[in-house]
Write a protein that binds this DNA or RNA. Structure first.
Lengths: 203, 203, 203, 203
DNA sequence: AATGAATGAGAGTTCATTCAT
DNA sequence: AATGAATGAACTCTCATTCAT
């Protein structure tokens, strides 16, 4: 059993190494251009080994995606302790953006890439996604019961808010801010979020 | 002359067919996966024929990109006649979203795709992009001189506004609204925009 | 007839232009890499036009080869006036080398390239080649009847002599003299010829 | 271990088969026209397999070139035991010609082909070439210190001698002896070499 | 458990050549 | 006489994947 345990552990470790290497390479070269061979080279195993742990390349996507949603939920959960819902909502925006900047590959997989969406998998990995989304929705609703956003539809409203930060995240990650001075882009994103928050508070 | 004309016309038509087929395939399969061969098959010509009209794959890509920016500018320009800047700003959002929905490939190329551009081209096609952006900026500034958005930085503000609609567009185009009932997604996007507009007016 | 004449003349002129352009491009890029399209571009006609004048690419080779042998014969003939056969033989070597250096493409076609030799054509273009060869043979024989090269077989001897200068020409044209100081290569070739001549005179 | 050995051996054998097939095809069709596909077909493997053994076509070319120089040096070395330098020089000619006839592809690569080398490789494979050349030079110098070739420049002289045999080799290998009766060509080459040797001895 | 060896499919691209006009 | 348009065949090379060992 000691032996079996060690084997089990080693197997998981290797799986982990593959996932890590794949994540880095996907991020660096893009999903298509990062090849199984590159991943194998990086962990110093043969390509065939990867197929012992993952059915195919797209399963690798899927597993990484699952991780992504889990980590995302962690970020989001960190906000639960904040009592004032409006305050919580604003921090939520900051946390969302931080997640995107800290984990650009994850963000891409979760919210931008077309590819993994075509998979049948999607359901399971989405639990964490849905729970995260629920945090937003609930926060918005609490804001409303505290007197904010009167007259709005909560669903539409939460979508609007999500869109605003998602928009910021993608414009930045996909490098679409060239018309702004390069050295001010990061700062500008923060200011835009701040502006958005200010406007929201007035509503 | 009649003959030469017809030839000329036919040549343009074929060029157009290539662009169209390429656009569809780029949208369906992505830039990388859509191959010259696939395009050729789709129009029922040989691959070599495509090279009679375009130097290489990236030129084809560039030409489509150029179109995208032109059409985008057309959409955006349609708004210039509106006197009241706040009204104009709101319509701008609607028009932006309409462009995205009407021309999902174009939208992708312009605002989402990580570009495989070693192209020097880019500059030229961007003029239309910059002019479009100027329309937004100017409108926001006019709003401010009409008493809206007091205390905000115009640059950050215009980015916030752009992000909000861009976020809506991409969440929708990249099919990230699954947690909302499928048959209400379109409607919801409109409502989110409406909510956003309402909030803005109060600021 | 004036008209027919002009047409005839123009046709020849175009043919000439093709041959010239092809020669230059074959020399610059090599036989394979110089494409029909390149030739056409150079003369500012369409590729199809070339096929009105030459059956295919290899006929072009052949025609140029024919030219080559003619020019070669001109060079060789220039030596006929020299009375003393030994003197004539030595000048022949110089002239041969000069031809190679002046007309590297021709030299290649005639004496090095494998390709055109596979053609059936060869016969006709060789007349000039054979007449040139006869000049050498005759000169060698005259040398012998003047007391030189006693005891040698004239055929073997003439081949030996030809080989010596041909060897020099090809080592030089194909850039195989790297082990000699680069700035002395030309000079060295001359000196080698001189050495060879000196040795011959003693035999 | 037995198994690993066998695998190792099989791998080397396949590599060898590729090299052999490539050599033959390069010789038959030329460097450019001999394609990876042709090589693969010849050994009845897929094209991709060749890339498991060689980085690309030019590496394959380089490896063959390296062999060529090594084998050439072997031929040349075989002459070192001959004391009398004039005798050694003559045998060197015979050996050189034998190498060319025995290994026409190698000879071509080394001394005739216009190289498609962007290869930095070249240097290493040239060591053997330079050592071979040194054998010639040294032999010539010894001849001179034994009283032969008085008054000659050793460098020019060695080039003259090399050229003579190289000329014979290439005229023969590139099939330029058609003006001599076909069944006497081999014999004639030998006689020419003999004639050349005789002439040299008198100098 | 791990892999070396192998490959079918496919990528972008170029070329000599043909043919209707 | 000249050509624009078109193509089939070929090129080098890469990739995800399989399978015997």
């Amino acid at each position: 059993m000691g032996i079996a345990d060690r084997k089990e552990r080693e197997k998981k470790e290797l799986r982990e190494k593959i996932i890590l290497a794949a994540s880095e390479l996907f991020l660096e070269h893009g999903l298509e251009k990062a090849s199984i061979r590159m991943i194998a080279d990086k962990i110093e195993y043969s390509p065939a080994t990867i197929y012992l742990h993952f059915k195919d390349k797209s399963e690798l996507f899927y597993v990484i995606m699952e991780r992504a949603f889990h980590k995302f939920f962690e970020y989001f959960s960190s906000v639960q302790h904040i009592k004032d819902p409006m305050e919580r909502l604003k921090v939520l925006g900051t946390v969302y953006l931080k997640f995107a900047v800290d984990n650009p590959l994850y963000y891409d997989l979760m919210f931008v890439l077309r590819k993994p969406m075509e998979n049948q998998h999607t359901d399971k990995s989405f639990e964490a996604g849905e729970r995260s989304h629920a945090i937003l929705t609930k926060t918005v609703e609490e804001c409303m019961s505290h007197g904010h956003f009167q007259g709005h539809d909560p669903m539409a409203l939460s979508l609007a808010i999500w869109s605003a930060v998602h928009g910021l995240a993608t414009l930045r990650l996909r490098n679409r801010l060239m018309m702004y001075p390069e050295d001010r882009q990061d700062e500008l994103v923060e200011q835009a979020l701040y502006a958005f928050n200010t406007i929201m508070e007035q509503a």
